[in-house]
């Protein structure tokens, strides 16, 4: 394999990890509660602002500020589900969709109102000399933050899988995602499972936002691209499949890098989306989707 190609793949892995993280949260929420959360990225953005406030304005320890930001997002997710979405669950999915769209606008407006227009900074969570990988006669630089993103994503992915597979709450999440009514009849408190999914999902969005912040800056639209790419990754993977979201995210990251390198940087997102359209034409249920699966 040529060094240049390998380099692109490594860069793609880094980008793809973030896409996967965003996609994972979107899929968990959709699979469990049936809602595609349009405000997903913005909820993470808001959490990044909270982290910025505690770290820069109040001078708190960075990791403590990050923990506060993520905790804030977890509660934002739980409360949004409980007070905005659950009361209208009986109406329709599109009604809930509109609510999340409203949330998106409100969060964006509030961020502008509170923190004004100028971009804010959040530092890398880990600093130090970047790693240098020698590839024949060229070399590749990877920052420690990039490695951190990859490691954190991997840890979260495996953590989530094991949690869903081997714990009682995990079983409840899988039950609710497959048949809500039967879950009621087995004694599951379905509302709590919704809350859990929203809390977990929104927490992941916050984590993605904070990890992406050093590159994207903290600003109202910082998560716009990640939300689109995360959504795309989720669709690519079949939308209801957690492994699909991961594979979709990584794949999308690599495709984008390859397009950027060999075709055109400006076209990387557009062409990546083209590839996905073609892929979905050939395999409409997504890479790891289950074609027969429908929410009841």
């Amino acid at each position: 394999m040529s060094a240049v190609l390998l380099q692109q793949i490594i860069l793609g892995l880094r980008e793809g990890s973030l896409f996967a993280l965003v996609a994972l949260g979107l899929v968990i929420v959709h699979k469990t509660t049936g809602v595609v959360n349009f405000a997903y990225g913005h909820m993470g953005m808001f959490a990044a602002y909270i982290t910025f406030t505690f770290y820069t304005l109040l001078g708190l320890n960075l990791y403590l500020a990050v923990a506060i930001g993520i905790t804030f997002a977890v509660f934002l997710g739980i409360l949004t589900e409980k007070f905005l979405l659950r009361p209208i669950r009986h109406l329709s999915h599109s009604a809930m969709l509109i609510i999340t769209l409203g949330m998106l606008m409100i969060l964006e407006g509030m961020a502008l109102l509170i923190w004004k227009q100028d971009f804010k900074q959040l530092p890398n969570l880990i600093t130090g000399i970047p790693y240098r990988i020698n590839l024949g006669n060229s070399f590749l630089i990877i920052t420690r933050q990039d490695v951190l993103i990859f490691v954190v994503t991997t840890a979260i992915v495996f953590g989530t899988f094991f949690y869903l597979k081997y714990t009682k709450l995990g079983l409840a999440v899988r039950m609710v995602s497959q048949n809500e009514e039967a879950s009621h009849l087995m004694g599951v408190k379905v509302g709590r499972v919704y809350g859990f999914a929203w809390g977990l999902g929104t927490g992941l969005s916050a984590l993605a936002a904070i990890l992406a912040a050093p590159k994207e800056q903290v600003q109202p639209n910082m998560m716009l691209n990640l939300q689109v790419q995360g959504l795309t990754a989720a669709v690519l993977g079949g939308f209801d499949s957690l492994p699909g979201a991961i594979v979709g995210g990584i794949l999308l990251g690599i495709i984008e890098q390859l397009v950027a390198k060999y075709i055109s940087v400006e076209l990387k997102t557009a062409l990546a989306l083209m590839v996905i359209i073609i892929l979905l034409l050939v395999k409409p249920e997504g890479l790891l989707g289950k074609s027969s699966k429908r929410r009841v």
Binding site: K168, L171, A172, R174, M175, Q178, N179, A182, S183, M186, G187, V188, K290, K293
Partner: peptide
């Protein structure tokens, strides 16, 4: 039933 849970997992779900 929960179609994508195994038979055993379905039984476990019943004992929730």
């Amino acid at each position: 039933l929960f179609p994508f849970l195994t038979v055993q997992e379905n039984l476990l779900a019943g004992a929730y």
